[in-house]
Design a protein around this nucleic acid. Sequence first.
DNA 1: CTAATCACCTGAAGGC
DNA 2: TGCCTTCAGGTGATTA
Length: 269
Amino acid sequence: MPELPEVETIVREIRPGVVGKQISEIISYWPKTFQNNCPAELAGQLVERIDRKGKYLRLSLNISELVIHLRMTGQLLLKAEAGADQDRHIRATIRFSDGQRLDFKDTRKFGRIYHVLDANEILDRVGMDALDQRLDAHVFYQLLSGKKSNIKAFFLSQKYISGLGNIYVDEMLFKSGIHPASVTAALSRRKANQLYGTMKDVLQFAVSNMGSTISDYRDAYGELGSNQNYFTVYGRTGQPCVKCGQSISKMRWAGRGTHYCRHCQKIYK
DNA sequence: CTAATCACCTGAAGGC
DNA sequence: TGCCTTCAGGTGATTA
């Protein structure tokens, strides 16, 4: 479900409601969601910061840190009331001393919450965030030109650049006219620069629309995103290409359904 | 090293 | 109505 824009939306929404609050209790309803079995030492800790790297959400407490990944269907829902409306898909709840709570809802149970002393144990393994200021056009080109990997697989991997997933990779490749079968190192500097700009535009536009909701994604208030209304290729199989009018194709690349236009997207090899 | 496949889960949708 | 297959915003392990 959530890629960078969706996680960013949630971070921005829960930050004012949660920073400075004290955790009173953590409840786990599905044993695998909480990797470290919600240790008692979490109770009483203060939330100092909430940040994001790629698709990981980071809650920095005064003693330790929580790192949350929503995977496919995870939602973080901020609830003001302490009431017990118990959705059967809620896998964990973080309660705060003022009565607010954060419910981790996750139909498919793929999501994870890690409790660690230092979030960098986990976050150092993922590449620079796609919207990180330090990822400039030069660094972007260096990353692409240094590898001969399939371009779709490159952006789906979180090892080089983090935050992009199946939707936004398809969107940025289409808008840049790059076929998903292309090879990273085959892009010229000029073409890489264009892709870099498109990547940022696509992500920032999606953030401004509170993310994309296809089925499960909800923001911290349970609201839908609206960016799905502006997709140019994702999910448009068989519909006319917005550039040339020909039918949009769908194939499997890097194990994922990949949407593209055979006529508008050139293969760089 | 990369690339493909499976495993982890539930639920919705389509074919018969 | 019901059964069976396929697919889904992700990623980590295993295999070739």
